[in-house]
Each structure stands twice: as structure tokens, then as C-alpha cells.
Design a protein around this nucleic acid. Structure first.
Ligand SMILES: [Mn+2]
Ligand SMILES: [Mn+2]
Ligand SMILES: [Zn+2]
Ligand SMILES: [Zn+2]
Lengths: 144, 144
DNA sequence: AACTAATTGCAAATAATTCTCAATCGCATT
DNA sequence: AATGCGATTGAGAATTATTTGCAATTAGTT
């Protein structure tokens, strides 16, 4: 059993919920790649192998995955909301190319520290970061 | 005529569009306060005085205001998208309290610089920043 | 195997946004 | 001030994204 399965199962157990087949399929699809995904993309991906998992269950499972800290909502500056699994990955920011959609992930303890300091000044307790920028990537700039 | 009206009119003129009555009403409502607003909140605000402006026109005008750099989409970590007028205001980040909804605006050239440097490393051209954090504010923490 | 509460898929409901279109507006020209 | 014409509008229909109600099914327990 994979680490993320254990974590999810424990999380569910505490809430008297069960790691059912559909939930396991959703979880494992999410952890099969490190792509950022919309609900629809996830649905399509899952449907390739499992014709019996419904959109409703995906919509019902995502909040559980978020609450258990296995995935996060990220890239909220695109048209659709996107998620990504974050368990096993360090916190990072996103540079999103408006032309080609490319996503560059960037880590920066420095930036984190600054945000933390700013929060401290205001006596604010940060639970979740939401940092990114939209623009044009290297390759797309060349083309202009 | 206010500065923002002039800017909007110029912007529109270049595109062979007109600063019509509804557009003027929407623009001026947006610039009447520095609140962050959802489309619905803006609609309600406008409707207090102008029963004849439709949702459709608001939805059609917002992209024009964004394109003319008078307003920006911000607070993309709440359920609904929110906008704010940014013309006349420095760039800032948002700390959003999950309990009471309070929004703290924070300026930081340092944070901007770091993001810019990170972008530079990746040869990425930032067009728009999207920086914030969710958490618990000072007052709400006391209450726990 | 029987029991029970949680879970599921489906389809209907809701919410947010976009689109269609006929009527109107704004502005330039007569 | 009347005319012409493309841009604009509001109303409501259409679309898209998400949530919900419910009867049938499942997982775990006795
Ligand atoms: Mn990422
Ligand atoms: Mn702001
Ligand atoms: Zn690109
Ligand atoms: Zn608060």
C-alpha cells in the first residue's frame, strides 16, 4: 500500500469514512503524475480505465483529498480551477505562460520568509499560500 | 471628467468602442470605493441606483476594464472571483481571513523583487502577479 | 448470512457565465 | 434636426460547472 493511500485511509477512518474503490481510483489517478489538473481532465483520465466512476464522486472526493492535505487547489488564475497533489512535494509557486499554458514551478524559501514576515506584522496566521504570476515564457517570447 | 473616465474613454476609442451610459455607470461604481467585489456584489451595488443596467452588460464590461488596466482580478482563492480597481493603487498582496473574510492589503517591494528575480532566472516575462494567502486574522484568533 | 451506515451513479437542480437577437443608442454627416 | 450605420443594450435562452436528492449498492461488523 502506497504512502498516500495510508494517509488517506487514516484520514477517512477518523471521520468514519471508508477508502472505497472509487475513492482509491481517484486518489491513485491523482498521484500517478505530477500534472496540474482540472476536474474535467481528471474525469477524462479516470474514465480511460474506469468507466464506472462518476463525476459526482470525483466532485465529492476532491474536498476530502484537500482536507487531508494530499492535494491542493492551485493555479487559480486560469479559467478553470486546477488542483495538484502536493503530498511529497515542497511548497512552490507557479509561473504560467498565457500563450502556451506551460507551468513553471519555482521554489523559494526567501519568498516564503518574506510572506511569513509580512503576515507576522499583521498578526495573521497563514494556512495556505497562493502565489503565482501570469506572463509569457521563454519559448513563446522568442516567437513574437 | 475623472481620470479613470478619461483613461477608459481613450482605451475604448482606440478600439472603436464608445463610453456609453451603462459603461460609465459600471466604471464609476467600481471606482466609488476600494472594496474588492464579485460580479454579483457589483450588480447589487449598481442596481441600488440604476435599475436598467443588466448583468450581461456588467459581464461584458469587466473584461474591458481589465484590459484597460483599470481593474484587476484579485483574491482568486475565494469561492467566487473578485475584482478590485487598481488604477491609482500600488501593487499589493492579500491576506484573507477564512473566518471573517477580512482582507488585509500588504505592499512589499522586497517580495516583488524576489518574484521578479525568480521569473528572470526562468526567462519568464511576468504580466500579472497573483499573490496572497489564506489564514486566520488577529481578531479571529483571539476568539478561539 | 444479516445488518447498518456510508457510498454510489444517475438525473435533476442550482449557480455562474456566455450567447442570441431584436430594439435602441451614439455619433458623424447631411 | 433628420438620417444612416455600426456599436450596444436588456431580456431571456443556452451553456458550463458544480451540487444535491434519492434509490440501489457496498464495506465493514456482528
Ligand atoms: Mn505545482
Ligand atoms: Mn486589494
Ligand atoms: Zn509559453
Ligand atoms: Zn478574521
Amino acid at each position: 500500500m502506497q504512502e498516500h493511500e495510508k494517509i488517506f485511509e487514516n484520514f477517512l477512518k477518523i471521520k468514519d469514512l471508508k477508502l472505497t474503490k472509487p475513492r482509491k481510483i481517484i486518489l491513485n489517478t491523482v498521484f500517478a503524475t505530477h500534472e496540474h489538473f482540472s476536474v474535467d481532465e481528471l474525469y477524462d483520465q479516470i474514465r480511460k480505465k474506469h468507466k464506472d466512476v462518476s463525476r459526482a464522486t470525483i466532485y465529492r472526493t476532491i474536498p476530502l483529498l484537500v482536507e487531508s492535505d494530499l492535494i491542493k487547489q492551485s493555479l487559480r488564475c486560469l479559467a478553470k480551477d486546477h488542483y495538484e497533489h502536493t503530498y511529497g512535494h515542497d511548497r512552490h509557486f507557479h509561473l504560467i505562460c498565457e500563450k502556451c499554458g506551460k507551468i513553471i514551478e519555482v521554489e523559494s524559501k526567501k519568498a516564503e520568509n518574506i510572506l511569513n514576515k509580512l503576515a507576522k506584522i499583521h498578526n495573521f496566521d497563514i494556512k495556505e499560500y497562493n502565489v503565482g504570476a501570469k506572463g509569457i515564457c521563454k519559448n513563446c517570447r522568442k516567437k513574437i
